[in-house]
Nucleic acid binder design. Sequence first.
RNA 1: GGGGCUGUGGUGUAGCCUGGUCUAGCAUCCGAGCCUUGGGAGCUCGAGACCCCGGUUCGAAUCCGGGCAGCCCCA
Length: 488
Amino acid sequence: MEKQQNIKQKLPDKFSNFSEWYQQLILRSGLADYSSVSGCIVYRPLAYAIWEKIMQEVDKRFKQLGIKNCYFPLFIPEKLFEKEAEHIAGFKPEVAWVTHAGDTKLAERLAVRPTSEAIMYASYSKWIRSWRDLPLKLNQWNNVVRWEFKHPVPFLRGREFLWNEGHNAYATEKEAMEDLWKILNIYKDVCENILALYGIVGKKTELEKFAGAVSSYAIEFLLPNGKAAQGPDAHFDGENFAKAYDICFLDQQQQKRYVQQITYAISTRMIGVMVAIHSDNHGLVLPPKVAPTKIVIIPIFDKQTKQNVLDYAKQVKSELVKLLSNSDSDAIIIDDREQYTPGYKFNEYELKGVPVRIEIGMRDIEQESVTVFRRDTLERFTIKLSQLSKIKELLDEIQKNLFEKAKQFLLSNVVTVNNIDELKQAIANKKMAKANFCCTKECEQNIAEQLEAITPRVIALDEKPNENDKCIFCGKKAQAVVYFARSY
RNA sequence: GGGGCUGUGGUGUAGCCUGGUCUAGCAUCCGAGCCUUGGGAGCUCGAGACCCCGGUUCGAAUCCGGGCAGCCCCA
């Protein structure tokens, strides 16, 4: 473990002072640090390890779907970028441009990718000729730059972030949509079963959908400060990009047709969402499946007992390594530093979110037991050495408990509202509000102008308005049930 | 997009209003040593800071302007 600064200062309170709490937690737990570039953070090893875990889990599932990884250039020539009108309109305000090489001005400036449709589809246009070339399912794990002007929040809003961008092309809309749902379910699976997060899967409204897409789907999360954060998403582009970038093929009837496309992404924003939802005033709380260190063993000894205790600790560690069949050097660690007291170490690992702590001193040795502390509930108890296998169950239990808590948090903070006043009230109470909505672009624009920062997050997929229900904004016939919240 | 607040060693802060006593205080962190170890131990010694540029003034951490950075509120 790296040295930590500031470890003796308490965190601000999560619920009364969320922003301060979040910011200090990120810095002090060693997840990330600010860099010399405003809006760009450093992902320190702890954060990067979590990101690696997300990548592994998603990637494994992508490969089962036949998605292949590749890499396209960071730069996009301006003319290429401008081909799809809505796409460029959506992204241009926050594109960073490369204009010079040394002191020489470039003939055509290059966009630093905010997303890679343009550069990838120029290749797709060359590669796809026949129905035999389809489907084409390519993904890249990369970085993108979007020069935001709102103030940055580590992980949740930054100018450069890491993500996957998948770009699939199909002969038919039916195939495209089938895969879109499989991919959304992969993201949902990883969010729920790895990150222990519960979100709402829904369809984006007209103004909130991806620039250039026909329709967008996303998983929305609610943070403890009442703001919603969009998690992984998937977009159906229809033929929009295919027409702009001339991606077509000859079908079995020898008809020239445009491909049907989908795109999908999950980003490092999920690290921020996860941290914000699970962690507490002691520090990070990491689900065992993402925590790079799952168990920390703290030996407690003095000069006389040192050797005994350390030997016992090593024995416990090697049994745990076997038990978890995890040989990562970080997965189970013994902290035998002598210059720090046990109390100091307890606080340190709570700050860093290690799921399980095992304390071993003479008392435990005499009783052939170990003292166990679980990070999620802050409970401490003793188990016999012969019962060490229970630790594995405990890790599963913690994982499950975090998910259930996250699910409860979201479900208990969604309220149904019947008019604008109730909506405002719900948002003021840090809730997500569910309301009947006409889903017209005009009405949505009015909301954006009149309701301050309240935006429609997603259209519910499992719920429809009744026959006579009206839109709570304009009073016209309701088309859908929509979730509203303040947004990150 | 608009308004407000803030910027002092690595970190958190005192000082700023009312310029001089600031050779900038405290805590933590960092280095050396002793001593300790079941919830952030103790002692000794050492190292370390006024965001940047300009202005006012005999004199600026302190006042003024601009820049940069961070935070909050509102659109």
